[in-house]
Design a protein around this nucleic acid. Structure first.
Lengths: 341, 341
DNA sequence: TAAAAAATGATTGGCGTTCCTCATTTTTCG
DNA sequence: CGAAAAATGAGGAACGCCAATCATTTTTTA
């Protein structure tokens, strides 16, 4: 009943404790057949390393870094709050989390921030960065130096990270497309799409998915040229107001942030007719929009969940558990007026 | 930089290690002013108990029990799989999870199962049970004996458990209502609602929320008398087939399980017209329904998330951390054809 | 076959707690 | 004031593993 310890393993393998230790922590200097004996014994006894004892003995715990875009976007603020919470909760388990930031959409700044990460003092880093060559090179360097990399919310090329934690953004776009088509009572007319920046991989993927569905299932809906709002509320408000007047779109899909501008413009619109509007992320602005009937539906990725998942995976990776516990994909949820608390 | 230990606390409090220990683990026999000195020192040093060392020393880890309805419902199967996964993942942290089952919807069997839980050997239990007096009494007894209780997926009266982990089912019903109203191009006509059993608190709450929205926002939609399907596929297939013929409903809301029957009936229906159909839980049956256009939307609660959350909260409670880390509410997600992988 | 190299064994101290026991000191109260 | 009670101090063993060192045995190679 009691769990097996290295002593048990040593005994059933008929080798010394030292040899078991050498195998388990691969310190080398052990014959192939001894390795096998130990591995068999591990299997037979059902030995699982006691992570408490291991950590206690090693002395060091888990040292993680989160690298986020700077700035006051509501989403980032929520992320930071969640990370802080997670940090508190895990302090008793010796988890230390350091939050740093780099300029949004600025690869140069991101590279600089990545350079600041010291492989000696960090086990794992979760980053939100652009998927461009310089950044990838820096990530690869860090990985080679022993820092495990988690790409958060927006993925990068698979070779540059260990795991991605975030939603499937193409699916998000497809969901937006489907709801757009179905929530418009008569799906014919122009649709306005506002992205933050198409250089951001998550935004590009959402657009891709959205387009697919509209083309396939709702050919009556036509896409107006996609505009980039750079997550700036004032700019977006202006954009939306003008498009509403000029084109009378039947739908609006806001891919990125800055939705306070969207809501403001919709509120001011004088027309009796209101386009079906879909946005991303549950924030004050989008919730206000939902509540007042200006936004029909919000596709949300729960930042709390992403953070929890990321920390968990980071712990697993730091524990050198071969198979990280879970997949990093986090589900998307759909919020409508009714689902507001 | 290094984290504070009880030694540090003892030193800054100017008391002995033994006294610190007495205070921290309230073993009594310590003067009020000493208690204060220690508490101040804890605050000043930022001491947080090292859970690794504590567990190692205590020898025992975490002993949890999950009590689920028996039976082969897809949802329960998923739950079991998730619990097993979670159990594996946490084995290295000395978490031992025992899964037991009781007859579905049968309070007598539930009470019997609860009686089997030995307070001596279990720290915490997560249960899916009916919210009836006999069961509540048994839960209360267990809590008094030192077993922390988590109500899972379906809540019970607040006094009978420590925390609820699951979705807000009234909100789920409201979401279903809103989507029902909006996805029907012309929301006028009868709507069929199939519940599992209205004695199940989660089902009753969903119905409540659904009703609210229909009455308020879509008065053109009328509710047919709610039928109970007891999560039995054959029975439900029959029910649906007959209602389709007799009443031509414009919408169907399936509150509970047994959706294989729903899908089968819809597939066989010969009418060109198909009612807007909303169901719960992502299972093989509902996914098949979505894929083939028989179901329009599924409201899902991710069992993996519920289990993860439950285990985490149980660990926190077992650690005697005063404030359990997180709220137990887990988000609902909406699945449509497009969001299928 | 002897010397060098590789593999293995034996042992130790420590990580931060918990949970004891056994003094010793301080406080309380008749 | 003195005896009993309460509070405190001091110390040690244990939990399971890690990271060493040093001695000894086995294997390889010239």
């Amino acid at each position: 009943m009691a769990r097996a310890t290295i002593h048990d393993v040593a005994r059933t393998a008929q080798v010394s404790l030292a040899t078991v230790d050498r195998v388990l922590n691969n310190r080398g200097s052990v014959a192939a057949k001894s390795v096998k004996k130990v591995q068999d014994a591990v299997a037979r006894t059902g030995y699982v390393r006691d992570q408490f004892a291991a950590n206690l003995s090693r002395g060091n715990g888990y040292r993680f870094v989160f690298l986020l875009p700077a700035g006051q976007s509501a989403f980032v603020r929520k992320l930071i709050a969640e990370i802080a919470r997670e940090s508190d909760l895990n302090r008793k388990d010796r988890v230390h989390i350091d939050i740093r930031s780099s300029k949004t959409f600025d690869p140069v700044s991101q590279v600089a921030s990545l350079r600041q990460i010291d492989p000696e003092t960090t086990d794992c880093a979760a980053v939100i960065v652009s998927d461009v060559p310089q950044v990838r090179a820096e990530l690869t360097r860090l990985r080679a130096a022993g820092v495990r990399i988690v790409s958060l919310v927006a993925d990068v090329q698979a070779e540059a990270r260990d795991i991605y934690v975030g939603p499937n953004n193409e699916v998000a776009g497809r969901m937006a497309g489907q709801f757009m088509g179905r929530l418009i009572r008569e799906p014919v007319g122009p649709v306005l799409v506002i992205a933050g920046s198409l250089a951001a991989r998550d935004h590009a993927q959402r657009l891709l998915g959205f387009r697919q569905v509209l083309q396939n299932d709702f050919s009556g809906l036509t896409l107006l040229p996609v505009v980039e709002g750079f997550d700036d509320a004032a700019r977006i408000a202006d954009l939306v107001a003008r498009t509403l007047d000029a084109m009378s779109p039947v739908g609006i899909y806001a891919i990125g942030a800055g939705n306070a501008g969207l809501v403001a413009a919709l509120r001011r619109a004088n027309s009796a007719f209101r386009p079906v509007t879909i946005a991303h992320e549950s924030t004050d602005a989008t919730r206000e929009g939902l509540r007042d009937g200006l936004i029909d539906l919000v596709i949300d990725q729960d930042p709390g969940r992403a953070v929890t998942r990321a920390v968990r995976l980071m712990r697993d990776m730091a524990d050198k558990q071969a198979v990280p516990s879970a997949r990093g994909e986090i589900p998307l949820s759909v919020i409508i007026k009714e689902s507001l608390s």
